[in-house]
């Protein structure tokens, strides 16, 4: 493959990787840290729910759905920027 394509692919991968790291950090927050501290969060209330309970049954789930859609939206933009979007 030509040198400039190679450099462009490397840049594409760098951006893809950084986006993935950000998404995974948020995943740790909603999937591990918040459920861990559910007990303390229960002191607050949200929509009438104890907050910690709310995250475990609804809030984190909504966050996961949003994370995937946001990641895909950003990833499509990165792919298009480097001309490797496949559609």
């Amino acid at each position: 493959m030509p040198a400039n394509t190679k450099a462009s692919h490397q840049m594409h991968w760098l951006k893809t990787r950084n986006l993935t790291y950000v998404i995974l950090a948020l995943w740790v927050l909603f999937g591990i840290i918040i459920p861990w501290f559910a007990g303390s969060l229960n002191a607050y209330s949200f929509l009438g729910f104890p907050l910690g309970y709310y995250f475990c049954v609804q809030g984190s789930l909504i966050a996961f759905v949003a994370l995937i859609w946001i990641q895909n939206w950003r990833q499509d933009a990165i792919d298009d920027e480097f001309g490797v979007g496949d559609e």
């Binding site: 993935t20 998404i23 909603f30 999937g31 459920p35 789930l61 996961f64 895909n72």
Partner: peptide, 19 residues
């Protein structure tokens, strides 16, 4: 509460599948 690990785990896994 410990059982809610299934609810969070069986949805959060898809973030890993996707990324």
């Amino acid at each position: 509460y410990p059982y809610l690990g299934y609810i969070v785990g069986w949805t959060g896994g898809y973030v890993l599948v996707n990324s």
